[in-house]
Design a binder for these strands. Structure first.
Length: 550
RNA sequence: GGCCCCAUCGUCUAGCUGGCCUAGGACACGUCCCUUUCACGGACGCGACAUGGGUUCGAAUCCCAUUGGGGUCACCA
């Protein structure tokens, strides 16, 4: 083997545009990007849109947006779309056919299915065998309007390649060679074909991809040999698993979470299905079908409605797409750091890295072969630490980004200065969503404060309205305060409590409920300063009215 | 089911050219401290080499088997 000049390393990420970027795809992209950046090589992006039915332009845009958001910039100025390269593929396929290395096959998908079924019944593995059609058959197929596919004549021999993650040679015996499809009946190349041609033409030297492609590699090698192409270095990455199911992380996991919650709610509240379906504005048969069928998923309009009915929020669902993480208030540097640790480690005890550190320390030989379970708790902890250490500028830009994808948040009303204050007062949060949920009352009109019934009951009404009395008592003090800063308010309320022989909590908690609507908030005196005296008094009056009416 | 891959605390992992390991770190969890709430923070603690055989003076580290988990068997990538 010749020594590869590291500066010549070319990697690529080649997603198929079927939706937002999946977290597993993001990790694959990250590893390829890291390898290129670590060695001063190039990282390329190619769109594998050969599945016409599933690929959309929207999806391509979302994919590109997610990659940009992550900061995984690619080095090809022009994106490569496979769908625009049909001429190139067809020319090569014609060449293969003229050399007798590829041929047309006429079996329909139903016929293929039947063949597979019978092989299964006979309990032997199915391998496609070339059939010789008579002239009559061919004429009949064409008369029927059948469309042929093109299959590659895969030489029957043992194939072997070295996988640098597994650090071993992977071999496929000769009797598993099979003439696989390289051009589909719609004229598009298959993945196997496009990937081989494009990797060669783009000069890709290193292919880091998911483990699900391990066996495909033999097909690719056979094609490379037939075409006289170079063989890139292969590295197959482990599969990230859902910690609850132990299966591959899947978009379906979110749906599963909702279904589980619906079932819990139905069991505990004895609320019947028709009732929930109606509340979610869904047809009952559709709702029941979904409820009973794992493989059926709610669509994007149904999902939020059902969630609202059973009291689930965005933050309760497992994030699967990069966009989910963005919406839930994670930053790219945290996500990337964490993703790098799913299957890779720097060795030793270090695990918190900036992006430049990641680039510097990344090597392929430290990638692990076993499948990690995706542990969101730890990601959350990384996020907490990141926000605790971030500069005010980074905090604000992260929050602005979060708000762009969460337009319904009340914090969108804030000025930069206000948001900076909120960020400072509310420090110690895990994610921006967490911060948003805790601090959103700061930027909504007094009349729109919603008083949480359990907080009102526990803090204001309990013990014969003890809290309400305390609130009414301290109102005068607040109304007459001349200095409405957090410090001054705290000092004033503290001395008030001493004077009245009350614990601080006995007074502070009722104020909190009155001002925030909940029993939980950032430090209350600073919140009061932020909101200002008129609003604080208005909110207290409103709370007193509500308490009196309860 | 066939073929392939993998196997250290609940989780992510360090360690794997055998002795520095009565196995290290982080998350989670538990106790305590801080505290006007929730968090944050601090201290301490709990906790693993899947099993069975080898090889060796000596194995988490090497070999084999078993078990378990995962992947794959498309005109989807």
């Amino acid at each position: 083997m010749s020594q590869i000049d590291p500066s010549q390393i070319v990697t690529r990420f080649a997603p198929s545009p079927t939706g937002y970027l999946h977290v597993g795809g993001a990790r694959t992209a990250l590893f390829n990007w890291l390898l290129a950046r670590n060695t001063g090589g190039r990282f390329l992006l190619r769109i594998e849109d050969t599945d016409i039915a599933r690929s959309t332009e929207d999806a391509t845009r979302q994919l590109v947006d997610d990659l940009k958001w992550l900061g995984l910039e690619w080095d090809n100025a022009e994106l490569v779309y496979q769908s625009r390269r049909l001429d190139i593929y067809n020319k090569i396929i014609d060449g293969l056919m003229s050399r007798g290395l590829a041929y047309e096959a006429w079996e329909t998908q139903t016929e293929m299915e039947a063949l597979r079924k019978s092989a299964e019944r006979a309990r032997r593995p199915f391998l496609y065998k070339r059939t010789n059609y008579t002239a009559d058959q061919l004429a009949q197929f064409k008369a029927e309007g059948r469309k042929s596919v093109v299959r590659f004549v895969m030489p029957v021999k043992e194939y072997s390649f070295r996988d640098v993650v597994l650090d071993k040679d992977i071999t496929q015996p000769a009797n598993e060679s099979q003439d696989f499809v390289i051009r589909k009946s719609d004229g598009m190349p298959t993945y196997h074909f496009g990937v081989v041609i494009d990797d060669e033409e783009m000069g890709v030297t290193h292919v880091l991809r998911g483990l699900e492609h391990l066996k495909n590699t033999f097909n690719h090698i056979a094609l490379q040999e037939a075409l006289g192409y170079r063989r890139p270095t292969y590295a197959h990455l482990s599969v990230m698993l859902n910690p609850e199911t132990g299966e591959k992380l899947s978009k379906r996991d979110r749906d599963r979470r909702i279904r589980k919650r619906v079932q819990e709610v139905m069991r505990s509240t004895k609320r019947p299905a028709p009732d929930i379906a109606a509340a979610a504005q869904m047809e009952l048969p559709r709702f029941e079908h979904w409820l009973a069928t794992e493989t059926v998923q709610l669509d994007l309009t149904e999902q939020p409605k059902v969630m609202a009915v059973v009291g689930l929020t965005e933050g309760d669902l497992p994030e699967i797409m990069i966009h989910d993480f963005r919406r839930n208030g994670y930053t790219p540097e945290v996500l990337l750091n964490f993703l790098a640790l799913q299957g890779w480690s720097a060795g030793g005890d270090d695990e918190k890295f900036t992006i430049p550190e990641l680039i510097k320390r990344f090597t392929v030989d430290r990638i692990n072969a076993s499948n990690p379970k995706f542990n969101r708790e730890k990601l959350r902890s990384f996020s907490t630490d990141f926000f605790a250490a971030a500069s005010p500028e980074r905090l604000l830009s992260a929050l602005r980004d979060y708000l762009r994808v969460n337009p319904e948040s009340s914090l969108n009303r804030g000025t930069d200065e206000q948001l900076a204050t909120i960020l400072r007062v509310g420090h110690g949060f895990h994610t921006l969503r967490d911060m948003d949920e805790k601090a959103r009352f700061l930027l909504i009109p007094d009349a729109e404060i919603r008083y949480a019934p359990d907080a009102v009951a526990k803090i204001l009404l309990k013990n014969d309205g003890e809290g309400t009395k305390a609130l009414a008592g301290v109102r005068g003090l607040l109304a007459s305060a001349t200095d409405f800063t957090g410090h001054a308010l705290e000092a004033a309320v503290k001395s008030y409590c001493e004077e009245k022989q009350l614990g601080l909590g006995k007074v502070a908690q009722p104020i909190r409920v009155a001002v925030c609507g909940t029993a939980v908030s950032p430090p209350i005196f600073e919140c009061m300063e932020f909101i200002g005296k008129p609003s604080v008094l208005a909110r207290i009056d409103r709370a007193l009215t509500i308490a009196a009416a309860s």
